[in-house]
């Protein structure tokens, strides 16, 4: 149990996916202008990451290793993620139409989000157990959502601020990410 808590906190705060590992930056700079859409995106990514991590672990343990085709992991993982995203999209569309419209375009875009493929690759490199992999994905998703929400809150305020012309848009977003990164490096000594 203790080990799982360490994995969760390590993934969410210390090795945060966005500002320490640089995974999932496209939604970070693309979507995060309003808190509402940032939260929807964060939740959608977390769900897909968790299910993908579970599926990737099972495939690694029961297909790739027994058949000795571990070098196929890149192709297998990306296909599994693409398929899962489609299934989840169909499932949500049938069961909860309101949620489906809330997620909108973000759901299909998750396939090419490097955070999702990233968590399956990290779990593989770290050699986590099944429960460890799932907890790592949950932690990474929580950290992802947290940073996305913080960033969107700051950028909402920023829209009314008088930013120098050449800094408007992306450059100032990068500088905010720098400051967030510096603040989060304080978590480094926690464990």
């Amino acid at each position: 149990m203790n080990e799982l808590i360490v994995i969760f906190i390590g993934m969410a705060l210390i090795n945060n996916f966005i500002i320490v590992r640089f995974l999932g930056l496209c939604p970070f700079f693309g979507v995060s202008k309003h808190i509402g859409s940032a939260l929807s995106m964060g939740v959608a990514v977390t769900i897909v990451m968790t299910i993908s991590a579970l599926a990737a672990w099972l495939i690694e343990a029961y297909i790739l290793i027994p058949f000795d085709i571990e070098y196929m992991y890149i192709v297998m993982f990306i296909l599994v993620i693409a398929t899962l995203v489609q299934i989840i999209e169909l499932f949500i569309k049938k069961t909860n139409a309101q949620l489906y419209f809330a997620f909108g375009i973000y759901l299909p875009l998750i396939t090419t989000n490097c955070a999702v493929l990233g968590i399956t690759l990290i779990n593989r490199v770290e050699g986590f157990s099944l429960s460890g992999s799932v907890v790592a994905a949950l932690g990474a998703g929580a950290g992802f959502t947290l940073i996305l929400a913080m960033m969107s809150g700051i950028r909402e305020k920023l829209e009314t601020a008088n930013t120098p012309k050449s800094m408007r848009g992306l450059p100032v977003a990068f500088l905010i990410a720098t400051l967030l990164g510096l603040a989060f490096s304080g978590f480094g000594g926690m464990l």
Partner: peptide
């Protein structure tokens, strides 16, 4: 360190503009 990457790319973009 990771924050330095954001700092450099942000400033380089601003200088280019």
């Amino acid at each position: 360190l990771p924050p330095g990457a954001f700092l450099v790319i942000g400033l380089v973009m601003a200088i280019f503009r």
